[in-house]
């Protein structure tokens, strides 16, 4: 400080260690992921991290911002990890690179860099990939297809064309397509493709990490609790109304990116609301949109779009939910 003023003492939290703890909290989910699906996801994460760092470095240079401080704040890494975890692990390398570049350069730095991006960068990267390469982005690894590191590397470099049966639809996707043929949902839900327990275990890993984040006070309870609660309530409600058309709540809570979103994606502070009431409303809105997109929309999974839409509403939400000041009526 050039004009030194109080306070002269400071707490120990910093952006870089908050982001570091977030990455730590992702590790249980990541390990379970690798246990069931091989090292494909690790390759994606490493590539996304490298891409993010390089992109961040060059864009900081171009914007004439001190690079050291901003490279070590770990925010680019968190974006890269979240994006890589959202992309199918059998996506070829260039998918990861394009997504990461888009997230860092356009979604983050074109809006002013750390602290100024109005959209969640990882979700923008994901949405762009989903729109541009739907065929790749909607194929998930078939868990029965256990493959070794060589295959994983080959898939990473050249895509999945050489390997038959490696990819299948995600449970959300499968159920959605089946329902389009006017079938009853109950038998569909009992099909093996709709009961991807391995994916559910990964979700459990993220839940563990999320509880760790709550415990270390990196995030507050508002967002994840309200998000999961809303999703639970809406899905239960629809299921009660027509069990033959709507899946029960466990299907929605355990599949797709629900857990990752609850604790890691919607909790991005920069693009989210700041007031407690605002957080509650924000989480509610996202859960509502996720359910609507999943059940009535054109895409099997709606987290990215729900988050991006809710991001747009953040300034309004913040404005309308200003808490009462001490002693004010």
């Amino acid at each position: 400080m050039i004009n030194l003023q109080s306070p002269f003492v400071q707490g120990s939290t910093s952006v870089s260690n908050i982001m570091f703890i977030v990455m730590l909290a992702l590790i249980p989910g990541l390990i379970i992921y690798m246990y069931f699906f091989g090292i494909g996801i690790l390759l994606n994460i490493i590539l996304a991290s490298i891409t993010a760092i390089i992109a961040e470095y060059f864009i900081l240079k171009i914007r004439k911002i001190p690079t050291k401080v901003f490279l070590t704040d770990n925010t680019a890494l968190v974006t890269a990890w979240l994006l890589a975890l959202s992309i199918p692990s059998i996506a070829p390398w260039w998918i990861t690179v394009i997504g990461t570049l888009f997230a860092i350069i356009i979604a983050k730095h074109f809006y002013g860099g750390i602290g100024s991006n109005i959209f969640n960068p990882a979700m923008i990267g994901y949405a762009i990939l989903l729109i541009s390469f739907p065929a790749i982005m909607t194929k998930w690894q078939n868990p029965s297809y256990l493959y070794d590191a060589n295959i994983a590397f080959s898939v990473f470099m050249h895509g999945i064309d050489n390997y038959d049966g490696i990819a299948s639809a995600t449970p959300l996707d499968y159920v959605k397509t089946e329902l389009l043929q006017n079938k009853n949902i109950l038998p569909i839900l009992n099909e093996p493709l709709a009961r991807l327990t391995q994916m559910q275990w990964v979700g459990f890993g993220f839940l563990l990490g999320g509880i760790f984040l709550l415990f270390t006070k990196i995030i507050t309870w508002h967002l994840p609790v309200i998000y999961l609660l809303t999703l639970f309530t809406i899905s239960s409600l629809f299921h009660l109304i027509d069990p033959s058309q709507f899946a029960p709540f466990q299907f929605h809570l355990l599949n797709g990116g629900t857990m990752l979103a609850a604790f890691f994606i919607i909790t991005d502070p920069v693009s989210g609301p700041t007031t407690p009431k605002g957080k509650i409303f924000f989480a509610f809105l996202i859960a509502l949109l996720v359910y609507l997109i999943r059940v009535f929309g054109g895409y099997p999974e709606g987290i990215a779009f729900a988050v991006i839409f809710a991001n747009i509403c953040v300034p309004l939400i913040d404005n309308l939910t200003q808490p009462k000041v001490f002693g004010h009526d």
């Binding site: 400080m1 004009n3 001190p66 002013g112």
Partner: peptide, 12 residues
């Protein structure tokens, strides 16, 4: 008057 805070980093 208190002055506008000035510090090194954060040119943006």
């Amino acid at each position: 008057k208190w002055k506008y805070p000035v510090y090194k980093i954060d040119k943006v």
